[in-house]
Amino acid sequence: MKNRLKVLRAERDWSQGDLAQRLEVSRQSVNAIETGKFDPSLPLAFKLARLFGLRIEEIFLEDSGQ
């Protein structure tokens, strides 16, 4: 699933490690989510949304053709 995590992170000048620390997950988790290789669970998606002050659908984008 595509997402805007990299952009949102860059806007706040956060590294993957910074975001991982805020989410209480590993940096590898942030990288996997950011690159669209791993889809987070709903609780983690809500946590991300809360952290960025956005709605989930403003962070995660539905893949085209679905």
Partner: peptide, 8 residues
């Protein structure tokens, strides 16, 4: 294990 990616 709290980290769901690591758990996966």
């Amino acid at each position: 294990l709290k980290d769901e990616f690591q758990r996966n």
